[in-house]
């Protein structure tokens, strides 16, 4: 069986609004990041892959199965939506067991898988807790556990780290990386740090179009020699913002340490820096919309 997701010329419409424009992607085993601002079309794309939305035009095949055969695709896909919960009055174990039945798992198999997964997401001690009593981070971990309950070949997670504290976020990313060892994990996010820490292959979506597909190092290499930093006054910062893409700022008394993108060294005090994913992402987004003149 194929272990890739192939999307060809996918167009998606909501009434007259086009949410996805001629999207073509090939996604292989491992972590795949979908990056883009809110409303870029990431959730729409993930819902099409998860058979929650019928595609308008194009073809989508998940491990050799067309999304038109929704039942076949659902057997091999696990999904963690952006906004989710479970029946609040069920215990963690009951909720998992219910979804296990819906996934077609037998009693013994459910018992074994739930035990194993709760251990993996560190919720074994909370298995008798009601879902409504879980913290945001615990709910997210439970979300991952339910999504891989039936051992899917593809795991789709939509904005999974939103609202998590830094420690939970790191733990969650590590968990996703472990899961991605033997399956496709598609991680959708607008948080560049999540992608940087977990994904090798990524696609960047903007207004429904794929504006980049490749590896993270290749994306970063686009901005090599173009990232500078300089300590400037607050008044000079306004002028800098007009001419360059400022990717970060650190206030130092009356001055500011600014990090910005420029095609060539803009002034003598500017120092060339090592490019990061965030710089590359900002560069890419502004390339699409035009660098400030």
């Amino acid at each position: 069986m194929s272990t890739t997701i192939k999307i060809k010329h996918l167009n998606q419409y909501y009434g007259r609004k086009q949410a996805l424009k001629d999207v073509s992607l090939t996604i292989r085993t491992g972590m795949f990041g979908l990056l883009g601002r809110n409303g870029a079309g990431k959730t729409t794309l993930m819902k099409v892959i998860a058979t929650l939305l019928p595609k308008s035009e194009g073809t989508v095949s998940v491990c050799g199965r067309s999304t038109q055969s929704a039942g076949e695709v659902r057997k091999i896909v696990g999904y963690l939506p952006q906004e989710f919960s479970m029946y609040p009055n069920m215990t963690v174990y009951e909720a998992m067991d219910y979804l296990g039945v819906l996934s077609g798992l037998g009693k013994a198999e459910r018992r074994e898988r739930i035990k194993e997964l709760l251990e993996r997401v560190n919720l074994t001690d909370d298995r008798r807790k009601k879902v409504k009593a879980l913290s945001g981070g615990m709910k997210r971990r439970l979300g991952i556990a339910q999504a891989i309950l039936h051992d899917p070949k593809v795991l789709i997670v939509d904005e999974p780290t939103a609202g998590l504290d830094p420690e939970e976020r790191v733990r969650f990313r590590n968990l996703l990386c472990e899961i991605a060892e033997d399956r496709i994990v598609i991680l959708s996010t607008h948080i560049v740090g999540d992608i940087e820490a977990t994904c090798e292959d990524i696609a960047v979506l903007d207004e429904g179009s794929v504006i980049y597909q490749g590896t993270v190092p290749d994306l970063v290499s686009m901005t090599e020699g173009k990232v500078y930093s300089a300590q400037i006054s607050k008044r000079e910062l306004e002028l800098l913002k007009k001419d360059y893409i400022v990717t970060s700022m650190l206030t130092l008394g009356n001055n500011v340490m600014a990090r910005f993108l420029a095609e060539e060294k803009p002034f003598s005090s500017a120092k060339l820096c090592e490019a990061g994913v965030e710089d590359a992402y900002m560069y890419l987004m502004h390339m699409e919309r035009g660098i400030p003149e």
Partner: peptide
Amino acid sequence: LRDRRAMMQELIYTRRCSSFTI
């Protein structure tokens, strides 16, 4: 309405179980 209120709809929709069975 329980599925919608508990935000369970998409979790259930993506399961292999048929609509008839559910």
